[in-house]
Design a protein around this nucleic acid. Structure first.
Lengths: 125, 125
DNA sequence: CTAACTGTATCAATATTGATAGTACACTTA
DNA sequence: TAAGTGTACTATCAATATTGATACAGTTAG
């Protein structure tokens, strides 16, 4: 299921986050489906449970899963997960929009740029 | 002119960058006006010239000033400086727009959000 | 050409942060 | 009560960021 790559410079917990996030978005892990426990996955991947904990904690902050002490961690409903992630990203964008505004960029111009960026990234659909 | 705050957790060169950038944007430093030399400002602020060098180098990358070896560093024309900075910020935004798109956000919805963020930040004008 | 200024590049020392591990605690359920 | 679960805290090691020391290279005035 998850395969770590130690040649990859990216930290373990990031790799885990990305794979789990992708599976949740893709619906390969269904809403409310139970994820492997922190310890179980740690044993399986031969790493420290704390690393899994971190991945789960951050995915929870991003809205992709929810954890219940004593019970386990579960995938969020996909739609809700996506929306939570969108909120997070929008919050990250906010200060940049503010800066562009301070630099004198007007709203129509900004929207034109954003639109161009959006459409420029469309290879697949 | 520039006053350092050692209580501030932010690095020295960031503080210098912000103050100089603000003065250039505001037009308090006129286009092509000569800035203090790396060593001169270093002596004045009682810090290492290398720290000034870094601030200048990054401000140059952002388009706010230009440096000529042997001559000095000079403020860019404000309009050009602003546009260079806008480009930088737009590049930073790009991967986030791409992610929103991958998460399923459609263009009109995105533009609506951006518009809302833009207008939300308008206290002054 | 030389001296005194300018910015630039490189390397080193230090401080800060990041990533992971070890361990103990708290909640849930059977 | 026991065995599972997530959570919190601290420690440690590595990586990065920040700053400093120093040497190099371009410009200009005399």
């Amino acid at each position: 299921m998850i395969h770590l790559d130690y040649r990859d410079a990216r930290p373990i917990y990031e790799q885990i986050k990305d794979k789990l996030r992708a599976e949740i978005i893709a619906g390969k892990i269904l809403p409310d489906e139970k994820l492997p426990s922190v310890r179980e996955l740690a044993v399986k991947l031969v790493i420290n449970p704390n690393t899994i904990q971190r991945a789960y904690r951050e995915l929870e902050a991003e809205g992709f899963l929810y954890s219940v002490a004593g019970k386990g961690s579960f995938a969020s409903a996909n739609q809700a997960a996506n929306e939570a992630r969108m909120d997070t990203v929008l919050k990250q964008i906010t200060p940049m929009i503010a800066e562009l505004r301070e630099l004198g960029m007007k709203e129509p111009e900004l929207l034109e740029h954003i639109s161009h960026i959006y459409e420029g990234g469309s290879q697949d659909d």
